[in-house]
Amino acid sequence: MEADAELLGRLRAGDEEAFVMLVARYQQPMLRLARSMVPSQAVAEEVVQDTWMGVVRGIERFEGRSSLKTWLFRILGNRARSVGAREPRHVPMESLHAVDPARFDRNGQWADPLERWVDESDDRLDATIWSPILKAALDSLSPQQRQVVMLRDMEGLSSAEVGAVLDISQGNQRILLHRGRSRLRAILESTMGKG
C-alpha cells in the first residue's frame, strides 16, 4: 500500500485506479466489520457501499488529521451504527476466563507446563497456514470482540482510534480485546494439538 499522502492526492484528483486500490485493500475488512455491527449480510453490503460513496464525496473535506484507514473505518462505524441499532451498550459477560480454569491447580498455578511456540523450528507458525484457521476463529468470537480484535490486531489501529470507530470506552475495549485474543490463542493452541 502506498503512503497515505500520495494516495490521498490521487484520490482527490479523481484517480480511478487509486480508488480501486483502496477498495481492493479495504473492502473485505470493512465488510467483515460491518457484518458484525448490523443484522444481515445485505445490510452490511449496503453500509460498505454507502461508506465508499461517503469517501468519494467527502475526500475533499478529509483533513488528514487521522490516517486514511482510520477515517474509512470511522465513516463505516457511523453508518453501521445509524442502521444497526442492535449493538448492546454493555459488555456481555460470556467467557469470564482468559484460560479454562481447569488448566490451573488449586493454587492457581498451571497444572501442566505450557508449550513454547517460538521454539519450534518447523513452519507451524506460517501465516498462510494460519489465515483460514484464524478467520474461522474470528467468526466464533462475539460480534463485539470481533470488532475490536479486527481493528486492533488485523488493521493495527491504536486503542484511541478503535474507541472512536466503535464509540466504546477504553475500559470496555480492553475487556473485549482481552477476551477475544484469549480465545484466539486457545483455538490456536488446541489446533496445534495441545490443550
Binding site: 498455578q109 494460519w130 484466539l184
Partner: peptide
C-alpha cells in the same frame, strides 16, 4: 509457563495481523 503464555499471546496477535485478505 506464564512467560510462554505471554509469548503465545504475542504470536496470536502477530498471526492475526498477517491474515491474508481475500482478493476483490
Amino acid at each position: 509457563n506464564c512467560s510462554a503464555y505471554l509469548e503465545q499471546i504475542k504470536i496470536t496477535i502477530e498471526l492475526t495481523g498477517s491474515i491474508q485478505p481475500e482478493d476483490l
